[in-house]
Design a protein around this nucleic acid. Structure first.
Length: 280
DNA sequence: AACGCCGCCTGATCGC
DNA sequence: TGCGATCAGGCGGCGT
């Protein structure tokens, strides 16, 4: 799942490749990903627009564009479960399930999404619901604690709520809880202040480390040819999946204590943890 | 208002 | 071997 680190790595990759480029023809191959815009208005709004900046907010990609009339507006991207973005030469073959193609002269930006859960849209309302950025100063521990204190849900489930903290998904929720030594099953309101502080630190540490390690996202489509395409990072040196501590490691040994990692299901999602290192 | 559950999608895997 | 059934999972929407 593309989460904050994957999106950050992708944004850093796209930024120099897109800034200053002007959009020509706009192809919407799968209309649902641009909802609620209509294909015609989406295309006419984008056409002629110039990329001014590429930023990240939570798991969203913010493309700031400047129209011919020098009016700035945002194009919002979300990768959902299986979304990818590639800047490739204009004549390059396209991957299966290319949902939107923005032509940029000698190149093109391809938004590909196997399951079409993602978005590339002019509707910026989803940003209003987001909680603080965990890697910025906006991430306030006392507010984090206050919100956790009023929930009886397991902490793992709470961490997936984007209005609590923006950008954490299924992978890094498990990873952060492991690093903090907290059981994913523990009710949010039962965490001590000490545990909450430890968790906040762990969240930041895990996300930073994943960004530095290149996260788990393939940026180079030509290189993404492994059996499980998502877990292949083009240039082999940045292959962060191998450094995940618990995620997708059921039955394998915990690096901390040597006992087996366990997989459980919470709210219909897989959670991985070490029952020995993460008690409570 | 917190919380559980469904539907959206496709591809991988499972069961017969 | 082949083919249909099942499952995964971010997130919005809806009902309680």
């Amino acid at each position: 799942m593309p989460e904050l680190p994957e999106v950050e790595v992708l944004v850093r990759h796209l930024r120099p490749r897109l800034s200053g480029q002007r959009i020509g023809q706009v192809e919407v191959r799968r209309a649902k990903v641009i909802l609620p815009s209509k294909a015609s208005s989406f295309a006419s709004t984008l056409r002629g627009g110039k990329f001014v900046s590429v930023e990240r907010r939570g798991k969203f990609i913010l493309f700031r564009l400047r129209s011919i009339k020098r009016r700035d507006f945002l194009l919002l991207g979300h990768l959902g479960m299986t979304g990818r973005m590639f800047v490739v030469p204009k004549d390059a073959a396209e991957p299966k399930h290319a949902a939107v193609v923005l032509h940029l002269g000698k190149e093109k930006l391809v938004y590909q999404d196997t399951r079409y859960f993602g978005r590339l849209t002019l509707d910026t309302r989803p940003l209003e619901r987001l909680g603080p950025e965990p890697l910025s100063r906006d991430f306030d521990i006392s507010e984090f604690a206050r919100r956790l204190k009023r929930s009886a849900q397991p902490i793992k489930i709470r961490l997936l709520d984007q209005s609590l903290v923006a950008g954490i998904g299924n992978i890094y929720a498990s990873e952060a809880l492991h690093l903090a030594g907290i059981s994913p099953r523990m009710q949010a309101k039962r965490l001590s202040i000490g545990q909450i502080e430890k968790l906040a630190k762990a969240i930041r540490a895990v996300l930073k480390k994943a960004i530095a390690g290149g996260s788990t996202i393939p940026l180079d489509w030509a290189g993404a040819r492994a059996k499980n395409e998502f877990f292949y990072f083009g240039p082999a040196q940045n292959y962060y999946v191998e450094r995940l501590l618990v995620y997708d490691r059921a039955g394998k040994l915990c690096h901390g204590c040597g006992k087996q990692i366990r997989r459980i299901t919470q709210a219909a999602r897989s959670t991985y943890y070490c029952p020995s290192c993460q008690r409570g």
